[in-house]
Simulated scan of single mutants.
Amino acid sequence: MSVKSVVAAAALLALATPALADIEIRDAYARAAMANAKAGAAFMEIVNTGPEDDRLIGAASDISERVELHTHIDDGNGVMKMIEVEEGFAVPAGGAYMLRRGGDHVMFMGLRGPMNDGDTVNVTLTFEKAGDVAVAIPVDLQRQDGGM
């Protein structure tokens, strides 16, 4: 194999390899309101240790039929409503972004089974720059809002 071929192969491999993730997931937990709930959610701190802004643009898990990025908004009549955030959530370079109860979160819709305390939910978070980040998130049904 010639030097030119080795360099070309190395270049192709570098292009095919996802960027090293500058994303860290901290203090993640998931929950459902009750044992027979059809929806659940995950909350966490997303830390971007890299030099460039990134954006969480999607999530996937086999725990439910659909996984979406959601937030809560006031419908103008004092009623809070959950809606999908299709553009995702910006995570600034050298900063963090919180997904928390009552705010932005990962939503599991059409749960395929109960979310039991102590279980683990496998989730793949997709970022514009960092690509896919796999996270094992513990189910914690006892956690209160102030835990983050």
Rank of each mutant, 00 (worst) to 15 (best):
I63W: 04
D74G: 10
E68V: 12
A41C: 11
P138Q: 07
M1K: 12
I83G: 03
K38R: 13
A21F: 02
I25Q: 11
E68Q: 13
L56P: 11
V123T: 09
A32S: 15
A9F: 04
A21N: 11
V123A: 06
V121H: 10
A37E: 05
E24N: 12
A134F: 08
D54E: 00
F108K: 00
A35V: 06
K38H: 05
G78A: 09
G147E: 06
R100K: 13
I63Q: 10
G95Q: 06
L125Y: 00
G40Q: 01
E68F: 07
H105S: 03
E52V: 01
N122C: 01
V121R: 14
R101Q: 06
S64A: 15
M107S: 12
A96L: 07
T124F: 00
G78P: 11
L111A: 13
S5E: 14
V6I: 14
Q142P: 02
A30H: 03
A14G: 11
A42E: 03
A130M: 04
E52T: 09
A10S: 09
A28G: 08
Q144P: 04
R112K: 15
D104G: 10
D74S: 13
R143L: 07
A14H: 08
Q144F: 03
E52F: 04
G94W: 01
Y29S: 14
G76L: 14
L141R: 15
N116M: 09
D140Y: 00
K4C: 07
E68L: 07
E86K: 15
A14M: 02
